[in-house]
Design a protein around this nucleic acid. Structure first.
Lengths: 352, 352
DNA sequence: TTGTACGCGTTATCAT
DNA sequence: ATGATAACGCGTACAA
């Protein structure tokens, strides 16, 4: 059986094609009586709009934008690289992808960028969630025009966005607690947490998760007071170094923010006095991958930016095609040890 | 700038639309001179075939098939459920998905099923890789017709299929070794591996990976001789019970095949004599999830069938649309502990 | 060997 | 408030 077309619907409802179209696309100017008949016909025949035909007739190429904070060797720089690689694939499907850079932690710049994209008539946007009135207002305007907005990595109030793509940070913290607990094999210990800043929602959530499970399940492992590294390597190095001097029995370190090159530097210096503490950090990047391979750290928790981007783009596409968003399971973080590192997808293989 | 159409190409090459079409779709019957001009025009204009328009004109709905082995509370039953859920989503894009059941480990039935699908003119097929001449022959016939074939979970020779979607089993074994090693916290131990059968390629690979890393990195942890459970719960229960009696100092158990309900039963009976061994099993299913929540086991390695299916379908779609396959990173296995279990996506939420 | 013209289902424009 | 119809880009049947 052929899928019913809008022509079928119109015939079934006893109206012209144009009238049926007006109902489907909510263009208005239709007598309630006719509209009702069309709606019934749609239900009875099980009509579904043919996206391919719709896009064809409009001759339209969608325009998506991804707003990425600046910063090198961070989760964001990695995302940017991945996005650039998605471009050509999207081009085949007539989707143009704009990648916009903004200064990290600068809500004004972010809001301005959104406003600019609004003027350009963009169809969908993804951004790293940032709770600030100006940002929320710019997003509201965009969405009023029908654009789809996806928050990435860090979420915002539900009303402000169409979807959130990212990991559950409390779960990440709890998981790390379990792994650290297992690595103690029943022995007591002390865990040193390193945060960027406790004002960052994701950092606070991770730490809370860690604390919960340590308290409930591993009461012999004590949680020390956190170090604030402001996500800056030099600061992290200095403060971790000091902490390791001051506090002697540290059996585990959990770095739940950025600035890990600083931590790794300290660990390399002190690699001699075995057994070194169990070390867990976030995000699989150049430096953390190297440290894992070198045996300086034990576990990396990763957001899997590849999948995040995949999903974000899928949501944007569905929004642009005016399809209902489909409920997907929340994204789980990956757990990497030395043995299950993914192959580096950096440069193309060249030969083969 | 509007994307160039085949009409543009034809004009640019100074030939008719039909001639350009013949070149693009390799229909033959074109003078080499004309063909060359068309190819040049394509390159110069950067023409890309508009898939949406092509599908529209053919009024065609793609037909995909997924062949799934029978078996309850296994990775396959889970996949079947997931596939059924994909059906409606696919229907929106005019793709019909057939789900075919076959007896597990029955190459003849599998080959027959493939032949039947071939007669039906199917566009793409996914199946669990099974190395058998009859299966390979049926696949060859299908592919000769232009159908795309994806092997799932277990691979086959490269020439026989278009793509493999599944985890790297050696990596899985190595990863488990690391986790078990970490859980020993420097202490010595003995690991009991449970396989289905050493003839199963994936089982053998996992065990080999385990052995490698234990030998290299954790020489104090001894690998005991494996138990063969034939993937059957009763057999696993009996043999594991016997092994635990005979061998006293077991500190870890790695079940790398199926039949885990049997293992879990034994563990529940013996939960008293703490500390129990570290237990790692494969596949997140009802029983393994429950055991993890109950604290009877410690780690579950999962293939993430959701993602496997997603990818397999994406590859099939690209094949059907005659797009070049895009190189994707191999799928990584998920590591689950009690704290990072994904929400159960079983029944629909009912309310809200 | 080459060229023409129609239909696919939708959108958008121009009548009535 | 309603209806008719020309695109959109591709595949294909048919004509030359």
């Amino acid at each position: 059986m052929r899928a019913p077309t809008l022509t079928d619907v119109a015939r079934h409802a006893g109206v012209s094609y144009a009238t049926a179209d007006r109902v489907v696309n909510a263009r208005g100017g239709v007598a309630e009586k006719s509209a009702e008949r069309v709606r019934r016909a749609i239900a009875e025949l099980g009509y579904v709009r043919n996206v391919a035909a719709a896009n064809l007739s409009q001759g339209r190429t969608y325009r998506f934008a991804a707003i990425v904070p600046k910063g090198q060797d961070t989760i964001f720089s990695k995302m940017q690289g991945l996005l650039e690689r998605e471009r050509e694939k999207l081009a085949l499907d007539r989707v143009e992808l704009l990648i916009e850079q903004v200064e990290a932690f600068d809500p004004r710049q972010l809001a301005d960028c959104l406003a600019r994209l609004d003027r350009d008539g963009i169809d969908a946007v993804s951004l790293v969630g940032t709770n600030h009135p100006a940002v929320i207002e710019a997003m509201t305007l965009l969405r009023a025009r029908g654009a789809t907005i996806v928050t990435l990595v860090s979420d915002m109030p539900e009303e402000a966005r169409d979807a959130y793509v990212g990991i559950d940070n409390a779960v990440a913290g709890r998981t790390v607690a379990r792994l650290i607990g297992m690595a103690h094999g029943g022995q007591p210990g002390r865990v040193l947490p390193i945060v960027g800043a406790m004002t960052a929602r994701d950092h606070a959530e991770r730490l809370a998760g860690l604390r919960e499970v340590l308290t409930e399940t591993f009461p012999d492992i004590r949680l020390l007071h956190q170090i604030e590294g402001r996500d800056r390597p030099e600061l992290v190095a200095a403060r971790v170094g000091a902490a390791l001097e001051a506090e002697k029995g540290i059996t585990a370190i959990y770095s739940l923010g950025a600035g890990n090159p600083g931590l790794i530097e300290i660990l390399r210096e002190r690699s001699a006095p075995a057994p070194r503490p169990v070390v867990v950090v976030h995000e699989l990047l150049e430096h953390s991958r190297a440290a894992l391979e070198e045996g300086l750290i034990d576990v990396v928790i990763d957001q899997r930016p590849e999948d995040e981007i995949q999903r974000a783009l899928e949501i944007m596409r569905r929004g642009a095609d005016r399809l209902p968003p489909d409920p997907v399971a929340p994204l789980g973080a990956a757990i990497y040890v030395k043995e299950n590192l993914p192959p580096e997808m950096g440069a193309k293989t060249g030969d083969d």
